[in-house]
Amino acid sequence: MRHCQSIGVVASLIVATLAGPASAQMFDWVPESRAGGKLLLTGGVSTIEGSGGGGLATWAVTSGYGAEDGIGGNVHATYVNLPDYELRSWGAAASFWDRVEVSVARQEFDTGATGALLGLGSGFTFTQDIVGVKVKVLGDAVYDQDSWLPQVAVGVQHKSNDQGAIIAAVGGRDDEGTEVYVAATKLFLAQSLLVSGAVRWTDANQTGLLGFGGDRNDDVEPQFEGSVGYLLNRNLVVGAEYRTKPDNLGFAGEDDWFDVYAAYALNRHLSVTAAWVDLGSIATFEDQRGLYLSLQVGF
């Protein structure tokens, strides 16, 4: 775990170094290519699953600041402090020509002292790795202000959890799963309002942190995730998100997720997202509400 965190820190430093003037030079060998064409925050922030979005919900935008002629990328580290658990996530995303986004993320769901109460042992941690690809299929969320058409993207995320034995013991059917989603995002600029919705076909328990499928239900079903955001100024957006989830496991009920957030971009290379999240009941422990803090470094 410590090893992975240090990798995250090193990756952050590398990207922070590249994010300066070097990132522009980096692309000189690609004809007519350049970095940093998008406006602040229009690439969203990193979700806990690594893709660009609002934090819990995925958006149709590609992560980073590359426009049609450019490349964007970032790394993120996210910490969620809940009454009985801790969730940590870090990862990286790269976007090409504002068309294709590739993302990786590692999540650690740390049961802390709760692990002993669950019979797993204190500090027991589920680790999940996520690899994702998102492709913009139509529209431009920011510039198409003369039409109602949103920007639409399709994506796929493959998730693998390292605790297959425990997942099986609590009724989960699989320790890995692949999700497909369709996201639509629109900035209503005249109203300073961003609206985004996505449908994700999934059988993940707690987004995969407790595996996939279960004794109560083993079918992949469409779930909804949505965000609204209000632009307060060029650097700051505040909003709320909602994410529905399956309820597959008999031993513990699962609730939809909700959050209110503020995302602040200091500049094109650094943004901070703070949120109050309500993750409901997790593995029989109710009312998991707490602070979400995320740092994103990129270009």
Partner: peptide, 11 residues
């Protein structure tokens, strides 16, 4: 012009 040029002008 490229898209990034327009972005810069908007900024």
């Amino acid at each position: 012009l490229q898209a990034a040029d327009m972005g810069a002008l908007v900024e």
